[in-house]
């Protein structure tokens, strides 16, 4: 059974009288432990697909089985819990809380997990920061860190919940090439450690890095389904 099984998924947004259809029937299966790159031009629907995979959004039609469970009809609170337990998000613009230490940023997702006390939260955050090699920057605020370091804090934040899947949307889009290499190496490490990594990008070099390449164009998968 695949970890992620998407069948005939469409997404329609109503903007006034105009309907925007970023996904026009997508079917896709991703096994646990895979390393996948979703590639497409801007406006191709790749971000919408990632939002649906990450339970940020619901498909208009079609089914989405996550670990065998149909989550395409899950309500907002259920999806919040799924995001907290199954996924770790990494964004192009890092999205770290300003004026907040690296450690506290990493602890953040555990705040929303019931039954995790402050001692455990700290222990797990330290472990996650250790995995990304930032144990010497615990008390630093995002403004005191370089772009590459900020993205590593964000990856630690994604790892702290022990997610099944890391979802990264253009994770190196705001970085110089040296930092990009570091971050991609980090993803490779995580993949090697058994985590499913899904990268969304329009950069072919990064796409080539992944074990499997899925190309999307005009809301349809054209390669790699």
């Amino acid at each position: 059974m695949p970890l992620i099984a998407i069948e005939g998924v469409t997404k329609v947004y109503h903007l006034g009288e105009v309907d925007i259809v970023p996904l026009k029937g997508v079917s896709l299966a991703i096994e646990a432990g895979e390393s996948v790159a979703i590639m497409g031009a801007s406006g191709s629907g790749k971000t919408t697909l990632m939002n649906i995979i990450g339970c940020m959004d619901r498909p208009t039609s079609g089914t989405y089985l996550l670990d065998g469970r149909d989550v395409s009809k899950a309500g907002p609170d259920d999806r919040a819990a799924l995001r907290n337990r199954k996924f770790g998000f990494v964004f192009q613009s890092f999205n770290l809380l300003a004026r907040t230490s690296a450690l506290e940023n990493v602890e953040l997702p555990l705040l929303y997990r019931p039954g995790v006390g402050s001692a455990e939260r700290r222990r797990r955050a330290l472990a996650a920061l250790d995995r990304v090699g930032l144990t010497d920057r615990l008390g630093h605020h995002p403004s005191q860190l370089s772009g590459g370091q900020q993205q590593r804090v964000a990856i630690a934040r994604a790892l702290v919940t022990d997610p099944a899947v890391i979802l990264a949307d253009e994770p190196t889009g705001n970085l110089d090439s040296a930092s990009e290499k570091e971050i991609l190496a980090l993803f490779s490490q995580l993949h090697a450690a058994g985590i499913t990594v899904i990268l969304v990008t329009h950069n072919p070099d990064i796409g080539a890095h992944a074990g499997r390449l899925i190309r999307i164009r005009d809301g349809r998968i054209v390669e790699g389904a």
């Binding site: 990450g54 919040a80 999205n95 953040l108 929303y112 997990r113």
Partner: peptide, 16 residues
């Protein structure tokens, strides 16, 4: 707004 979005992305419910 972005902070709220981020908190929601990492698992905060509306109630939180």
């Amino acid at each position: 707004t972005r902070e709220i979005g981020l908190r929601m992305a990492v698992g905060a419910r509306g109630r939180d």
